[in-house]
Design a protein around this nucleic acid. Sequence first.
RNA 1: GGAGAGAUGGCUGAGUGGCCGAAAGCAGCACUUUGCUAAAGUGCCGUAGGGGUAACCUUACCGAGGGUUCGAAUCCCUCUCUCUCCGCCA
Length: 428
Amino acid sequence: MLDIRLIRENPQEVKDRLTARAGGAAVAALIDEVLACDESRRQAETEKQRLQSERNRLSKEIGQRKRAGEDTSETEALVKGFASELADWETAAERADVRQRELLLGIPNMPHDGCPVGHSAEENPEVRTWGRKPEFAFTPKDHVVLGTTLGMLDFESATKITGSAFVVYRGAGARLERALINFLLDVHTEGHGYTEVLPPYLIHADSLVGTGQLPKFADQIYACPEDGLYLAPTAEVPVTNLHREELIKHEQLPINYVAYTPCFRREAGAAGVGTRGLIRMHQFDKVELVKITTPETSMDELERLTGHAESILQQLGLHYRVIELCTGDIGFGSTKTYDIEVWAPGQNSYLEVSSCSCFGDYQARRMNLRFKDAETGKNRFPHTLNGSGTALARLYVALLETYQREDGSILLPEVLRPYVKSLEIGGA
RNA sequence: GGAGAGAUGGCUGAGUGGCCGAAAGCAGCACUUUGCUAAAGUGCCGUAGGGGUAACCUUACCGAGGGUUCGAAUCCCUCUCUCUCCGCCA
């Protein structure tokens, strides 16, 4: 949520920066509506307070005179006469306030100054690459063939019990998924100093509003309407909301959390786009990194966070590239985002396995998360960040396809062997 | 699911219709004093709106939402959450 004061004081700058986003022109128009709303809200507020102040003054007077034994019925009648006008202004102020918040919740964040300007994903600059595309003396198979043949992945059963775009992991396949979860959590807790949390997977609407999935992206989330609950689309939601409505101490920052959770996404409108195998599913596992930092350090922390996610791919020996999202491709609440894409030989393409973003104070403001500045004593909004560290399903794809042997077996990278308790899957 | 108790400022915890934005303590900040890694004393110290160049003025907020009243932390209703007991259950 953007700061209404910032909008009030620098409307043109806000509009300009929002316009750089995809669909930004329509968003900029909302700014004018917010400003009009703000204007009428403040007018109603002022009138309301004038009447309340008068009422309070007279009521106090009534109390004093009653104790002195005087008759106050005339003043009481006078104050009573305020009621309907007061109620009118109250309603007007309330209505404007609700509308203003509604508008603000639908306005995306402003990209950071350093965010590259562009119109679409084609204009995302590549920041760096690591490793090289592996070479094969044979034609590499894709993970669906490999995993199905080895009995690791069972798409048919998943379709039978749930539907398309789900999978059942079996035997060594299930063990590999579990091994990856443990490996990732160990790296981030022991290696990078994150605190592990295991949050609920069902969350209420306020949490989703806090991180920005609601109200705008309701069609992408599975809901349990009888209970007012939703299946978390990412651990970002429950974990960032751990401190919602809190006033935290300056010295507690930065807060670093890592969480493994399954993620549930309806993927409405995405049918047919990269849907083969594990690449786009309604349920997938992910290990997520979340940071809450001071505004001064958030950009440095974004670099570190991205590095932590990258180290997973490095330790697994997987070739990847890092791209930075341009203003036309960046997410709703983000000010700056790096995507990490791992090479998948069987797909002959890169797959996004991590998206690392700094949200500035956008989420903190939405969830009323504040910290007390130790120097000034003032309450401020911290910055929030998150990034996948990493998504499991696509990592799994890259792993099978990169480490496949000609006979269709998988030679595991060394770091995983203690977790899987084997150096290979399949094979002689 | 049933019965009971509760929800007050960063924390603990008083407060049952007006003098309560709210006692007290802790924590925090500033100063003073004492020659010792700290203690004592004094003062300051909630949040969010609105108005004002500013000092400042003002409104709201005592879990949430309604209601009663000239006036509500305080009375009434609904809801949420927490705790205790019972039931059920992995």
